[in-house]
Design a binder for these strands. Structure first.
Lengths: 136, 136
DNA sequence: ATTGGTTTTGACAATCGTTTTCATCTAAGC
DNA sequence: GCTTAGATGAAAACGATTGTCAAAACCAAT
């Protein structure tokens, strides 16, 4: 028996998508990335962008954000450890946050109500300085 | 000029939807409610359920929850003031939570990074006691 | 009660983000 | 180079939600 490859194959598409996200720094949707890559001349398919983002997220290499009525937005974060975000509603720029107090509160709240297998989502949305003053 | 009615008209559909949610107590999607109402013999349209839930939410009479890949879920909460939820992933049952510390943390985090017009989402997910032991 | 004008309803079509399908292409191991 | 399982992408399928519009219901004023 041959053992399965541990990592997905290295294709230029995957690399392009990853680095586009990397130097964007902001949260971007699959469609955003697709358009950006296209406009840069990269001939990737939308399907591939969706699939790649999904797989990167499954591997924990990027974070997702599901905002109310919007498309899923992905971001390449600076740290692989659990954290939350302060996201600009307008431009997608984000700061990474953490708070032991919040983690503790979540854990205790769940425990005291008899809930197990606990996870949580904590995100803060606002307008960053640049968007609030300058254009939109 | 006659002044506009302050409240939506009282239709039996609106009443039925509201009370179905009310005595469910859990988070339910538009489709869940539609099916339940139908099975009880109420001849409402799916469109109406969607519209009514939206309008009830706009008025702040019910809360919404947008979970990752699922349908929007609504709940009639006990309090009209800002709060968060501890939600059972399996049955939708929820506890209402509040924490001055978390609110303060969110406010300060945003402020210290120059973000304005701040809002946040904080939800805890888990398995409630009943679902963890009993069936699914 | 009846009317009139505005809202609300609901069957159906349309939208939109995302996933599936499947035939073709390609990276990576021999 | 050759093989082949994994990756790609165009197009179709999907599922939740919203738009359309004619018919029905509400309610204030006759």
């Amino acid at each position: 028996m041959t053992l399965q490859p541990l990592y997905p194959r290295a294709t230029w598409q995957r690399t392009a998508i990853m680095s586009a996200l990397e130097n964007a720094g902001t949260f971007m949707s699959a469609q955003d990335l697709y358009e950006r890559l296209r406009s840069e001349g990269a001939r990737v398919g939308l399907t591939t962008v969706y699939r790649t983002l999904q797989s990167l997220n499954d591997r924990g290499e990027i974070d997702v954000l599901h905002v109310a009525g919007k498309e899923a937005a992905y971001r390449r974060c600076g740290t692989p450890v659990h954290h939350h975000h302060l996201v600009c509603r307008s431009c997608g720029r984000a700061e990474e946050l953490e708070s032991a107090a919040v983690e503790e509160w979540a854990r205790e709240s769940a425990q005291s109500h008899g809930f197990t297998a606990v996870t949580h989502t904590v995100e803060i949305y606002g307008l960053c300085g640049a968007c609030a003053s300058g254009g939109d």
